[in-house]
Design a protein around this nucleic acid. Structure first.
Lengths: 179, 179
DNA sequence: AACTGAATGTAGCGATCGCTACAAGGCAAA
DNA sequence: TTTGCCTTGTAGCGATCGCTACATTCAGTT
């Protein structure tokens, strides 16, 4: 077993995997290093300090997210906005997505508190999601660009309400608001 | 200057004030104690452990939030859903509200990660906000109950998008989605 | 072979974390 | 006065935090 080279690039995927499973805020150097098969000493060596490591990591995760969206494109198109909304919300609620969601709210919370790198990562991920959503809009939609933004706002609100136990609230709101 | 008695009840307001200004996740016992004019030793004595302290604190903050909403009721009513939405969003965007927002996203993130007490506090605060929003709905609204849930979903989505730098996205979405 | 600089291991720094052991003070009941 | 409980101060525990000093190994150049 040849020892693989260690660098930012080889480290980041393993660090990202650990963060997706164990959270971002509570991640400290030693567990991160262990997950990546190295030492805290080397993480600092390669990234300079923890703040830079987190910033690079968030950027990398945003890239992963983009790639995941790219590969998830081209399903059968939705016929209506309602159907489009329902499908994407169901996908977001899937247990498989939970690690992403946990991380996502950490990013939002970090952005709100002004932690360096968080807002940029969140902005980037939302921009990517928005672009993806535009392509998912129904074929003959009269205003795909505005509609995508409208659906996105509703989707994110719904997911947040889910997170604090208000699934019903969002559902009843959508039912009442003729999409 | 008589020394005020120390108990959960007298401590909680001061702890809440500190948390609103310095965040919840990063709050450790010693700074909290200092802000409340006591010692970490006494915080543990009164609350048992930190987890219980945070749970009690979140409950208390939810109460503060409820009271703030109660007292903010009875402004001039909105004529349309759009006006209602605009007014509340503008209020949420006010710099004065930022400490609440920072804390709010911490609560959501904590709820997503399953930290004890976070989800309950978030649920309670959202329930209160929803009840408040129902009373803020326009006078002759055909479906105030469903409409409030719909507006709330949009509002929360908008505020989240704001937080990661997508103010325009939410605004354009609302403009496109004839309320 | 000698030199050089990047990569890595070992060990530990000072700070902070949540929490506890222990003793002393305050006060009301006996 | 004595007893006993509630409250509080002092001190410190073991663990973990981000980070660094120092020495060593290793690859490539000359």
């Amino acid at each position: 077993m040849a020892k693989p080279p260690l660098s930012r690039e080889t480290l980041l995927p393993q660090l990202a995997a650990h963060v997706l499973n164990h959270g971002l805020g509570g991640a400290s150097l030693r567990p991160l290093a262990k997950a990546a098969g190295t030492s805290d000493r080397m993480l600092i060596y390669h990234f300079g300090n923890k703040e830079q490591l987190v910033a690079d990591l968030l950027d990398h995760i945003a890239g992963i997210y983009s790639a995941a969206l790219e590969s998830a494109i081209g399903e059968q198109p939705s016929a209506t906005r309602q159907e489009c909304f329902d499908r994407i919300l169901a996908q977001g609620r899937h247990p498989m997505m939970q690690p992403f969601m946990v991380l996502w709210w950490e990013i939002v919370a970090g952005a709100a508190r002004g932690i360096p790198g968080y807002r940029e990562a969140g902005e980037q991920m939302m921009a990517k999601q928005l672009a993806w959503l535009e392509k998912q809009m129904p074929e003959g939609d009269p205003d795909p660009k505005g509609g995508a933004r409208f659906l996105m706002t509703l989707l994110e609100g719904s997911i947040m309400l889910d997170t604090v136990g208000h699934e019903r609230t969002a559902e009843e709101g959508i039912a009442a608001g003729h999409l």
